[in-house]
Design a protein around this nucleic acid. Structure first.
Length: 254
DNA sequence: CGGCCCTAATTT
DNA sequence: AAATTAGGGCCG
């Protein structure tokens, strides 16, 4: 059933793409399908769509399984400002993480889709503070290695036209347990997968950072998207061909 | 020194 | 539960 849905979805995407090409002409061939950034997901997942990101929120862990978004050059340049605080997602009705769970836990309320990637719209900025988009993160890692990866992504978005990014928690041995009365599970590590089109070819790069004090530069944590997919058992860019996820081309990722 | 990642205490 | 206020540390 799931497989047929997937195939059906791909047929629809292909049909839309063909239609798009007919209308727009060959110069549009560089544009990847809308929602290209969304990973593979099952019917049992709770998908929440917001202006700046789409996420799959997990009832059991009380963190997202993944958060996906597109980052364009213009979005990366934007500097809108507003004051927002962490809050519950009105689009998620079942029990979810709260501020109390994180308060004095020793763990950061770490953004998956970064606040700084959402400064092109005040609504997107506000929604980035929903717990749908938050995981418990080591503070040194969040403000160190993870932040450097986020800033590296923004610099890549400025160099190229747009990036497709999906990131989320990695659970292996659950060595950090849970926090708060809600029992929010603390991830063992985090993954981030990035895709970008350059010269008609798709390029990808990934990162895995342990949820512990990490401060090295992005390349230290670089891995293929393929290897992330093995670790989390999920296809991250279903519409990308396998070869694009099997290697990292540091000539295009500058 | 500004930008970005935050925290905690207090008030509503 | 959320808004307000005040503050810290790291890095390019």
């Amino acid at each position: 059933m799931k497989k047929w849905l997937l195939i059906g979805g791909m047929v629809v995407v292909a049909a839309l793409t063909v239609g798009f090409l007919v209308i727009k002409g060959p110069e549009a061939s560089a544009a990847l399908p809308q929602d290209f950034e969304l990973p593979e997901y099952g019917e049992d997942e709770d998908i929440v769509r917001h202006l700046g990101y789409t996420a799959s929120y997990n009832h059991g862990t009380l963190v997202p399984d993944w958060v996906a978004w597109e980052l364009t050059r213009e979005e990366a340049k934007a500097r809108k400002e507003g004051q927002f605080s962490f809050s519950r997602d009105p689009d998620v009705r079942f029990p979810k993480a709260s501020r109390e769970d994180y308060s004095r836990s020793g763990w950061d309320k770490g953004h998956m889709a970064p606040r700084a990637d959402m400064r092109w719209d005040l609504k997107a900025l506000e929604e980035s503070y929903y717990f749908t988009n938050i995981c418990p993160q080591d503070h040194t890692m969040n403000s160190g290695a993870w932040r450097k990866i986020e800033e590296w992504c923004r610099s890549q978005a400025l160099l190229h036209e747009r990036l497709y990014i999906v990131c989320g928690p990695v659970f292996t041995n659950h060595r950090h347990g849970t926090i708060g009365e809600g029992c929010v599970q603390v991830p063992d590590a985090f993954f981030k997968a990035v895709a970008m089109e350059n010269g008609g070819e798709l390029h990808t790069v990934g990162f895995i950072v342990d949820n512990s004090p990490q401060t090295f530069s992005p390349r230290h944590y670089a891995v293929t998207v393929d290897s992330i997919e093995t670790v989390i058992s999920r296809n991250l860019f279903p519409l990308a061909d396998e070869a694009a996820e099997a290697s990292i081309d540091w000539n295009v990722w500058k």
